[in-house]
Amino acid sequence: MAPLVAVVASTHHPFYYRASTQPPDQRPASVDTWVRKIEAFRETLRVAEPDVLVLVGSDHFHQLWLDNMPQFLVGAAPVYDANWYNEEREFGLPRMRLQGHPALSRHLLRRGLDLGFDLAFSNELRLDHSVTCPIITLRPEADLPVVPLYTNIFAPPMPQPRRFVELGQALRRMVEEWESDERVAIIGTGHLSLELGGPRQFGPHGPDPAFDAKAVRWIAEADVEGALSEVTLESLAEPGNATHGFMDFLLMMGAAGPGTPADYVDSLDLFHTMEAYFTWYPKEGT
């Protein structure tokens, strides 16, 4: 059975690439702090020595569109081109190309369907920054094969928050049941409080620091029941209109194992959003 060597949850900030590739003598000190935190976070994945990455994210209306909208979709391609013209335009993101892992894709689809998750699939998927940001921050060599899993946190109606937790738990089980000795890491990115296209966007910090403090605590403890006792599809609109991205963190809390404290926790209060970084090293039975 495949070893699950790390579960990594992170915010994804599309400006990191541009900020971190400025010449060091031209960038503000705040970027140096950000880079130091990212490099320390990167180390938590490196020491786990993964062979393959399952990447949980959410397409931002790039390839997945309202005429044919999946709730959960697994990439099943041998190769993934990545990043789109409007991400190049707005964030300066580079075009990328990642190797896929069709055998693991097939396994996740088969087992996912058998466990009661009607997963959609794509044989030709161009990835976006929800998945490439963690490659840039955590594995800039981009040298490992990946299997993307996209969730709908964008277009109502969306699945309930608890469903994200359940899928995370199932995802971990599927990985651990995979007949392979390849070392798997599950990396997922979401958001804390976030506003995009509304009056609270791009403020001096995230739109709801109190929610962020609570959310970091929930994630750090994988306190699924604490989070679910306060978070609903309706309530997630209150901290900011893009805060449904927190549901990808719920998925990762499910994968980490409800009630399992993270082995690594860090955060950074940036303009317009709070960044947060978590790593678990799974042990059997957690």
């Binding site: 931002h60 209306f61 964008f154 995009l196 296209g197 509304g198």
Partner: peptide, 8 residues
């Protein structure tokens, strides 16, 4: 209109 699409 979807605020993310409008903003972008």
């Amino acid at each position: 209109a979807h605020p993310f699409l409008t903003l972008t």
